[in-house]
Amino acid sequence: MTHKSDYTAAELLAILSARQLKDGMVVFAGVGIPLLAATLAQRLHCPGLTILFEGGVIGAFVEPGKLPPSTNDQRCTVRANMVLGSAEVLLLLQRGYVDVGFMGGAQIDQYGNLNSSFIGDPKKPKTRLPGTGGGNDIASLTNMIVAMKHEKRRFVENVDFITSPGWIKGNDTRRKSGLPAGGMFRVVTELAVFGFDEKTRRMKPLALNLGVSRAQVQENTGFPLEFDSDIGVTEPPTEQELSTLRVLDPERLYIA
């Protein structure tokens, strides 16, 4: 069994989120950890995983050591089944061909809304962030898995700005806003794996990562969490998962 000192937080994130994917799925992956984790899943338990990239790629098979610097680079197309326009690939989400959307996040709230646009008041922002990209489209149209670092400033009660909608204000507010399909499904961090309550749509811990206490998760979260008394513990990364991951990203572009 591997020990905590054998892997980095980013490696743990990539491996735990790769495990969320199932063989045969169609997954729309963002750049960074999602791209890496989807590719890792493809090399391990999901040989039949179909990866879509917003640059216009269906069935990507990214080469080890040649990770694309964005999801719009030619490296994304290697051994793909099809290349198409960016609007066309995004429209597959709207039509319903995509099982899971898979993204990173800068800031998330209790209802799984993501902010990648502004820190502070949008009218006079402290920081202007790069914005949605395909994030809003993916989050609006399919079931979402988010992989992100767990820090109190990133896990807030309400995001400063909803760039990519989760369950908006909980209950049926997402559907009422005009988004009847999809929604936030899982959030994977280096501390725990989260789901969302079926009714209230609030974030809820599903399992703790090895060696992480409830108090530690709560301390790093800006809103109260409810832990089930029989909450599980995730399996630590296996040697095979770690070695496969390191072959994919030998320069540690995304797993630093």
């Binding site: 909608p165 507010t173 005009g178």
Partner: peptide
């Protein structure tokens, strides 16, 4: 017509788009 942006603050900032 599209479905994304609905319910988000990206839309709240875009009076050019019409619900």
């Amino acid at each position: 017509p599209i479905r994304p942006m609905l319910g988000s603050d990206v839309l709240a900032q875009r009076p050019e788009a019409k619900e």
